[in-house]
């Protein structure tokens, strides 16, 4: 679906939200709002989510692209594609048997700075997606993603709220002296981690 583009760069709060609302009120069902600061990003995303939209945020060169898809309203698009109904329903589906392993606080090998941006985007996108893993296991530097101050905590919390079980390796937390700082998920042990991995159908290692 083609999204209507709204350029809200150079504007400060509350104007980006005002422009987003104007576009929605004109009847736009898909929007791509471009903003240049985190305050506008959060406010626009919050506004759209509050209106029942599906929201995705992409960061590009210091700019934020907020992708908004409004739920299909009755009458307007009666020929809606099969499955649209489920997509509107905000309750998540966890893929039974799928386990995501976070073994590092970066995604991929090579550039660490890039890797940490990637893992943040990965978790954010995953947490807002339609299909979630049943469990997420964090070990080695992966536990750093779930401690106080990490910018990935919010995404992980969202997943937890949506029914994903988060297991953080206790040995690893102890190693980093961060046992007290775990902000999301439960402290786990090797026994439980092995049981989770062996009992899974699909393991995705980041």
């Amino acid at each position: 679906m083609e999204r209507e583009k709204v350029d809200a760069t150079g504007l400060s709060c509350p104007l980006p939200v005002v422009k987003t609302r104007e576009a929605m009120d004109r009847g736009a069902t898909g929007l791509e709002v471009l903003v240049d600061n985190p305050v506008s990003r959060d406010n626009v995303a919050r506004f759209a989510a509050n209106r029942g939209a599906r929201v995705e945020v992409r960061e590009e060169n210091g700019l934020f692209r907020v992708l908004i898809d409004m739920p299909v309203t009755e009458g307007a698009e009666t020929r809606s594609i099969p499955g649209a109904q489920e997509r509107e329903n905000k309750t998540a589906v966890t893929a039974a048997g799928t386990v995501v392993v976070l073994s590092d606080d970066a995604m991929g090998r090579g550039e660490r700075e890039l890797g940490s941006l990637l893992v943040k985007a990965f978790l954010n996108t995953l947490s807002e997606g339609e299909l979630l893993p049943q469990k997420v296991v964090l070990y080695n530097r992966g536990v750093l993603l779930a401690v106080e101050g990490a910018d990935t905590v919010e995404s992980l919390k969202r997943m937890e709220e949506r029914g994903v079980q988060l297991l953080a390796c206790g040995t690893c937390l102890n190693y980093f002296h961060l046992m007290e700082k775990l902000a999301v998920g439960t402290v786990s042990n090797m026994f439980e981690i092995i049981e989770t991995l062996m009992g899974s159908e699909k393991v995705i290692v980041i």
């Binding site: 400060s12 709060c13 939200v17 305050v39 406010n43 626009v44 919050r46 509050n50 902000a183």
Partner: peptide
């Protein structure tokens, strides 16, 4: 109104300022 995206930018700046002292 906050849920409708009406949080002023200063609230975010204030939030950053006290971040280090805050335990949730």
């Amino acid at each position: 109104m906050a849920e409708s995206g009406m949080v002023p930018g200063c609230a975010y700046r204030n939030r950053d300022f006290i971040e280090k002292r805050l335990v949730i």
